[in-house]
Design a protein around this nucleic acid. Structure first.
Lengths: 305, 305
DNA sequence: TAGGTGAATTGCATTATGAGCAACTCGATG
DNA sequence: CATCGAGTTGCTCATAATGCAATTCACCTA
């Protein structure tokens, strides 16, 4: 009975796949198969139903998985504490973030973070679909917007503000809209994600609630950066969170529009959160990363300052 | 980082010795040394001070030991539960008992116990000095008398009764004493253990408290069975717990004396206990053994029935 | 319905890891 | 001062894991 076998079992159970577990641990699938087989032999008990497409836990496997996961976590924490006494946080830190946010605000921070914590290796994966940190074996997941309720803990990194803006060239040619209603006469480049077409919300000065304004345009995309690119080229007006376009705003490549109205892409303000399994916070590398992230982002976040 | 290394570390920490840990696990000492070294290297931290005679835990080692011990116990329980579902308790059961009691009442029970639980192997060690089950890596320790307060759990197996007795030949020759005081005229064979010479206590019919009676004789020993042998040969009168001499009483090779008085070798009645680390009871092989022991001994114990 | 695909298992050669033995060092003990 | 026991280190050998290729199997698609 070996630790690798137990770890592999947990990974297989979490992902529901031998192959995925193998990839995560950097091992050939055959090794995973053999380790699991050895574990089952040692227990004299089948842990997994090998079904055709997916792998499912047996009843004993399910109980064992819960227990072993807890045990391995505890062991890892204990080991890290022992190793980390009077030393630096270390080990592999796996981060997942949305593509746009990760490229702009996570990736640029990693250099200084890793310079400070020389013994932390990072593995940054960017993906826009929500992923379960437990299932994917990721330490921290950064997500914008709605939190899936679950056994996870979320820590807010920043609040999200939206601005309506367009390139100076566009505004010069088509004029500056003076009210949200005037947007109906403009070409609005609209994000269309998994939740459908993004609505544009506006709050009148002094008002409490956001109201939807009808907007239309000749380009929709599920890729924010494509829209941004089009806006930079003067194709139309966009509604984007400030963290996405602060560089363009600062450089003057985009000009804010309708600054007297508060705009939003959501009916209610949403934040940017770091999400992780509860017990991961006890890991010093995760704690170090989150603290570093929170301090460097600041309050208000540097892109809004 | 391997499980064996962790197990060995726990054993080394518990025993304070590489050699002892090696013996317990049935490995050469060199392997232990190497495993511990590998563990320390993996942690980048020294876990043990190698002192000349004994090995002492470092500060981190101490914390790590506590945590790892807990973790391994939890893992073993989980593993056993998983393995044991719809199956029998199994594994190695290590029992320690006093020499005399073990030979008479533990060893004879093991055959039927193991016949019933075919997959349990037992390792019975007999020793009269108290041993710490944690330190020695033993599952169950059976002890007569005073319990060391500690982190251990004790379960009473039986109460202990004493009888004064002698061989028929002796009584025929020297006469039957009619009161405890009359013992001063007899040759009393007295046990002398680590707590000094055993006192003979008597309680008058209807009285509440035991009173010491002075007794003397020409043989003292720290070995009860030697005294018993002498008594059987007619050398004198002995005071022994019933579990030690019930066979001789039943066969008539020894005759009770002073049956109207309750005798005792202790100022207060003492019991026979099974002692074990608290979490071991969750192990089904230990539970099975304790239950088997309690049922076969019965209440009152079969040697008193 | 047949072929293609991805996933799991199995066989096999290579490699590495751990076991076991012996030699060595170092304090402690008598 | 010699001996003993404990821990470490060097070395050989066997066992076990690895990685690759081949195979099987169910499902998906054309």
């Amino acid at each position: 009975m070996s630790l690798v076998a137990l770890r592999l079992f947990v990974r297989v159970a979490a992902t529901g796949s031998f192959a995925a577990a193998a990839r995560q641990q950097g091992l050939p699938a055959s090794s995973v198969s053999r380790h699991i087989a050895a574990l089952e032999k040692a227990l004299g008990q089948r842990l997994l139903y090998r079904h055709t497409r997916a792998v499912r836990l047996t009843e004993v496997g399910e109980r064992y998985y819960q227990q072993v996961r807890e045990i391995l976590d505890t062991l890892d924490i204990a080991t890290e504490q022992a190793a980390g006494t009077a030393s630096q946080p270390q080990g592999l830190l796996r981060i997942n973030a949305p593509v746009a946010f990760g490229r702009r605000h996570i990736a640029p921070r990693l250099a200084s973070f890793q310079a400070r914590y020389a013994r932390i290796e990072t593995e940054l994966t960017l993906s826009d679909a929500f992923i379960d940190p437990v299932q994917e074996g990721v330490d921290v997941v950064v997500r914008v917007g709605a939190l899936n309720d679950s056994s996870l803990v979320a820590r807010q990194l920043a609040r999200q503000h939206f601005v309506v803006c367009a390139s100076p060239g566009y505004l010069e040619r088509w004029g500056m809209p003076s009210t949200p209603d005037a947007l109906s006469e403009h070409n609005c480049l609209i994000y269309k994600g998994t939740r459908g077409v993004q609505q544009w919300y506006f709050r009148d000065p002094g008002a409490r609630k956001y109201r939807v304004r009808e907007v239309r345009g000749n380009l929709r995309s599920n890729n924010a950066e494509s829209l941004l690119e089009a806006a930079l080229q003067g194709q139309g007006i966009v509604l984007f969170p400030t963290w996405l376009i602060h560089a363009e705003l600062k450089a003057g490549r985009l000009t804010p529009v309708l600054s007297d109205w508060e705009a939003s892409g959501e009916p209610a303000p949403q934040g940017i959160h770091a999400i992780f399994p509860e017990n991961r916070l006890r890991s010093s590398k995760v704690a170090a990363f989150l603290n570093d992230l929170q301090t460097t982002i600041g309050e208000p976040p540097y892109w809004d300052a």
